[in-house]
Write a protein that binds this DNA or RNA. Sequence first.
DNA 1: CTATTTATTGACTGATTGTTCCATAACAAA
DNA 2: TTTGTTATGGAACAATCAGTCAATAAATAG
Lengths: 193, 193
Amino acid sequence: MARPREFDRDTALQRAIEVFAAHGFEGSSTPMLLEAMKIGRQSLYDTFGDKRTLYLEALRRYSEESTGATLSAMFDSHAVLQGIEQALLGFADDAVSGTSRACLGIHAVTEFGTSEPDVTAVTDAVAHRTLLAFESRLRDGIERGELAGDLDAMAAAQFLLATLSGLKVAARGGASQATLHGIVGVALRALAA
Amino acid sequence: MARPREFDRDTALQRAIEVFAAHGFEGSSTPMLLEAMKIGRQSLYDTFGDKRTLYLEALRRYSEESTGATLSAMFDSHAVLQGIEQALLGFADDAVSGTSRACLGIHAVTEFGTSEPDVTAVTDAVAHRTLLAFESRLRDGIERGELAGDLDAMAAAQFLLATLSGLKVAARGGASQATLHGIVGVALRALAA
DNA sequence: CTATTTATTGACTGATTGTTCCATAACAAA
DNA sequence: TTTGTTATGGAACAATCAGTCAATAAATAG
């Protein structure tokens, strides 16, 4: 019909994710975004709306991918404890790979808390989804006797979610991969039979 | 000698801490700070230097107070596990009290990572101090047989530090006090003999 | 009292913020 | 080729940013 755009929408969005993760919403200026995304000013507003809309789409996109990868790793292994271990270790490895070590999800929570409904909708959804997956898998493990019989599945799920946050913060603060793996090792002790 | 200042420096700084914790460095504008601190523009620059210097002093002040309270709670109890439990529970209670539920320390790490040496100096120092205290107490507990004999004290200390971060992020995301207490309960299982 | 020192107030700066307008360019369908 | 539609690039917008200047006010010391 008309002139096709000269850039790839998805790669531009991916680059925006990195900028927002590294500097937050307030810390990311439009010039910074434009330079990183390698598009012109008008292209940003035509394609993504405004800065806030771009941020929300970046947050949604990041949340889906990040959550999906971690949870699927958990179900890869038949053994429950081993599956959880692989999920946590993979999560930790992702956290230290790359240069910025920043997580858009964590950054969104610390920057906005529960004050912005549009942001909270995304962060709550990913938390809920993760909790349900953890809880289900933990319940299986408890029933099968692979995990401690007196474990509270819901509390343990919330503990694992908090552990993920702790890993991300530690990674952002400069912790080594070995340190993160050590944390995972200790955390798993809380679940073992 | 001359005209005395009309405001209390410490309370003004305390109010600045709340603003920076809630909105981060980039998200806190000078008008926001002035209104919260209830001082005039020139008073801020005369008394605290510029925005960045104020931020660093706020971060230092917050770190000292927050770390001190948590670690002293740990040494209040003779029993090691109980002392750690009280430290974590007190930390969790602090995290849900107040309105903003924000932590300046966590916010500083997620916002700047390791990119700003002045900020990293503070966050690294508080992490190091906390790790040393945890490790020492954990070693005592292992020796006395109150904690698991095969526990790696250093890794467990890093695990506890990550748990603190996880608790703060969960609280900032809206978790209830009961949820945080549940997380603490599961976390302690990783240490028990 | 006067003199000196410091705090406060408000106006003001240049730079940067997010966003829009408009003219031009590039493509597809007729 | 014309026409319709969309993308791009640059200039421009009002608003806000962090920070400064100068005038006034309030205190003490002599």
